[in-house]
Amino acid sequence: MTFKAIINGKTLKGETTTEAVDAATAEKVFKQYFNDNGLDGEWTYDDATKTFTVTE
């Protein structure tokens, strides 16, 4: 399945996608990506659209 992340950061904005077997796996991938890029913020997840949003 394809999962999307919308990034609303102070220094980084945009979208990225990942292929994962479930939402928990996708969340781990996205959180690692955000940690690697120095992002920290509020997380939400919309199961209907398979979209994570992080707002810094």
Score class of each variant (00 low, 15 high):
Trp43Tyr: 04
Lys31Gly: 02
Lys50Leu: 09
Glu27Asn: 03
Asn37Val: 14
Ala20Met: 01
Val29Leu: 11
Lys10Ser: 11
Thr16His: 14
Ala24Phe: 08
Tyr45Arg: 00
Glu56His: 06
Gln32Val: 09
Ala20His: 02
Leu12Asn: 08
Lys13Gly: 07
Phe34Cys: 15
Thr25Glu: 12
Thr55Arg: 03
Thr16Asp: 02
Gln32Ala: 11
Asp36Arg: 09
Lys28Asn: 06
Lys10Trp: 10
Lys28Ile: 10
Gly14Thr: 13
Asn35Ile: 13
Val54Glu: 02
Leu39His: 04
Thr51Val: 06
Glu15His: 08
Gly9Leu: 15
Lys31Thr: 04
Thr55His: 07
Phe3Glu: 06
Phe34Met: 12
Glu19Asp: 09
Asp46Asn: 09
Thr51Gln: 03
Asp22His: 02
Leu12Met: 12
Thr25Ile: 07
Tyr45Cys: 00
Phe30Lys: 00
Lys10Gln: 08
Lys28Asp: 05
Glu56Arg: 05
Thr17Ile: 10
Lys50Gly: 04
Phe30Ile: 02
Asp46Ile: 02
Gln32Glu: 10
Phe52Gly: 01
Thr51Glu: 03
Thr18Tyr: 08
Gly41Pro: 05
Thr25Tyr: 06
Phe30Leu: 08
Asn37Ser: 12
Met1Arg: 08
Thr17Ala: 07
Gly14Cys: 15
Glu56Ala: 09
Lys4Thr: 13
Ile7Met: 08
Gly41Val: 13
Ala48Gly: 07
Asn35Glu: 13
Phe3Asn: 05
Thr11His: 11
Asp40Gly: 09
Ala23Trp: 10
Ile7Val: 10
Thr53Ile: 11
Thr17Asp: 04
Phe3Thr: 05
Phe34Glu: 01
Ile6Glu: 04
Val21Gln: 12
Gly41Trp: 15
Lys28Met: 11
Ala24Thr: 09
Thr2Pro: 04
Thr55Ser: 09
Lys31Leu: 07
Ala20Thr: 04
Gly14Ile: 15
Asn37Ala: 13
Thr2Cys: 15
Asp36Ile: 09
Glu27Val: 04
Glu15Lys: 06
Asp22Leu: 01
Asp47Gln: 09
Val21Trp: 10
Asp40Gln: 13
Asn35Ala: 14
Met1Trp: 13
Leu12Trp: 14
Thr25Pro: 01
Ile6Ser: 03
Asp46Ala: 00
Ala24Arg: 08
Val21Glu: 09
Glu27Pro: 00
Gly9Trp: 12
Thr44Arg: 08
Gly41Cys: 09
Lys31Ala: 06
Lys4Glu: 04
Gln32Asn: 07
Thr44Gln: 08
Glu56Met: 13
Lys50Phe: 08
Glu15Leu: 11
Glu42Gly: 07
Ala5Thr: 04
Gln32Thr: 08
Glu27Met: 13
Val29Cys: 13
Gly38Ala: 05
Ile6Met: 06
Lys4Cys: 12
Thr11Gly: 11
Gln32Lys: 13
Ala48Gln: 10
Glu19Ser: 10
Asp36Met: 12
Ala20Pro: 01
Gly9Pro: 02
Thr53Arg: 04
Lys4Pro: 06
Lys10Glu: 09
Asn8Tyr: 12
Glu15Gly: 04
Thr44Ala: 08
Lys10Tyr: 09
Phe52Thr: 01
Thr2Lys: 13
Leu12Ser: 08
Lys28Pro: 02
Ala20Tyr: 02
Thr2Met: 13
Val54Asn: 02
Leu39Lys: 04
Asp40Lys: 13
Ala26Asn: 00
Met1Lys: 12
Thr2His: 10
Leu39Trp: 15
Leu39Tyr: 12
Lys10Ala: 11
Tyr33Arg: 05
Asn35Leu: 14
Tyr45Phe: 05
Gly14Pro: 03
Lys13Val: 10
Thr2Asp: 10
Glu42Arg: 07
Ala23Gln: 07
Asn8Cys: 15
Trp43Ser: 01
Ala48Asp: 11
Lys13Gln: 10
Tyr33Lys: 04
Lys28Leu: 12
Glu56Asp: 08
Thr25Gly: 05
Thr51His: 01
Ala23Asn: 02
Glu27Trp: 13
Asp40Val: 14
Gln32Gly: 05
Phe30Ser: 00
Thr18Cys: 14
Tyr33Asn: 03
Thr11Lys: 11
Asp46Trp: 01
Trp43Cys: 01
Ala20Ile: 03
Asp47Pro: 13
Tyr45Ile: 00
Val54Met: 10
Gln32Ser: 09
Gly9Thr: 15
Lys4Trp: 10
Tyr33Ile: 10
Glu19Leu: 12
Lys31Glu: 04
Asp46Gly: 00
Val29Asp: 03
Asn8Arg: 11
Asp47Gly: 05
Asp36Leu: 13
Phe34Asn: 00
Thr17Gln: 09
Thr16Pro: 02
Asp46Cys: 07
Thr25Ser: 11
Lys10Arg: 12
Gly41Leu: 14
Lys13Phe: 12
Ala20Ser: 05
Trp43Val: 07
Phe3Leu: 03
Lys13Leu: 10
Ala26Thr: 00
Asp36His: 07
Thr18Ser: 03
Val21Pro: 14
Met1Glu: 10
Gly9Ala: 07
Asn8Gly: 04
Ala26Gln: 00
Ala24Gln: 10
Lys31Ser: 04
Thr25Cys: 07
Val29Trp: 15
Leu39Thr: 05
Phe3Ile: 03
Asn8Ala: 11
Thr25Gln: 12
Ile7Gly: 03
Glu27Gly: 06
Trp43Asp: 00
Asn37Phe: 15
Val54Tyr: 14
Ile7Phe: 15
Asp40Arg: 12
Glu42Asp: 11
Phe30Glu: 00
Lys50Cys: 06
Phe34Thr: 10
Asp40Ile: 14
Val21Ile: 12
Gly41Lys: 04
Lys4Asn: 06
Asn35Cys: 13
Gly9Lys: 07
Ala48Leu: 10
Ala48His: 08
Ala20Phe: 03
Trp43Met: 07
Glu27Gln: 10
Tyr33Pro: 00
Gly41Gln: 06
Asn35Arg: 14
Thr51Arg: 01
Lys10Phe: 09
Gly38Ser: 06
Thr44Tyr: 09
Thr16Tyr: 15
Glu19Arg: 14
Ala26Lys: 00
Thr55Lys: 05
Ala24Ile: 11
Asn35Gln: 14
Gly38Gln: 07
Asp40Phe: 14
Val29Ser: 05
Asn37Glu: 09
Leu12Phe: 14
Ala5His: 02
Asn8Trp: 11
Tyr45Glu: 00
Tyr45Lys: 01
Gly14Asp: 07
Glu15Gln: 09
Thr2Val: 13
Val29Asn: 07
Glu19Gly: 03
Gln32Ile: 08
Ala48Ser: 10
Thr2Arg: 12
Met1Gly: 09
Tyr33Glu: 03
Gly14Lys: 11
Glu42Tyr: 11
Thr49His: 04
Val29Lys: 09
Glu19Lys: 13
Asp22Ala: 01
Ala5Ile: 14
Tyr33Met: 13
Phe30Cys: 01
Asn37Tyr: 14
Asp22Cys: 03
Gln32Leu: 07
Asp40Ala: 12
Ala23Pro: 06
Tyr45Gly: 00
Tyr33Gly: 01
Met1Cys: 13
Thr18Val: 13
Leu39Ile: 14
Ala5Glu: 05
Phe30Ala: 00
Met1Ala: 09
Tyr33Ser: 02
Ala26Val: 00
Asp46Tyr: 02
Thr55Gln: 08
Ile7Trp: 15
Gly9Cys: 14
Glu19Asn: 12
Met1Val: 13
Thr16Asn: 04
Gly41Phe: 15
Lys13Ile: 11
Thr51Gly: 01
Val29Pro: 00
Thr53Asp: 02
Ile6Cys: 09
Thr51Asp: 00
Phe3Lys: 05
Met1Ser: 10
Glu15Met: 13
Thr51Tyr: 02
Thr49Trp: 03
Phe52Leu: 01
Gly38Lys: 07
Phe34Ile: 09
Thr44Asp: 08
Thr25Asp: 06
Glu15Arg: 04
Asp46His: 03
Ala48Pro: 06
Glu27Ala: 09
Ala23Ser: 07
Ala23Tyr: 09
Asp22Asn: 07
Gly38Met: 07
Lys31Asp: 01
Leu39Arg: 04
Lys50Ile: 01
Lys10Ile: 14
Thr55Glu: 07
Thr11Gln: 10
Ile6Pro: 00
Phe30His: 00
Asn37His: 15
Ala48Trp: 05
Thr49Asn: 06
Val29Ile: 14
Gly38Ile: 07
Thr44Cys: 10
Ala24Lys: 11
Thr18Asp: 02
Phe30Pro: 00
Ala26Gly: 00
Ala24Pro: 05
Ala48Arg: 10
Phe52Tyr: 04
Ala26Trp: 02
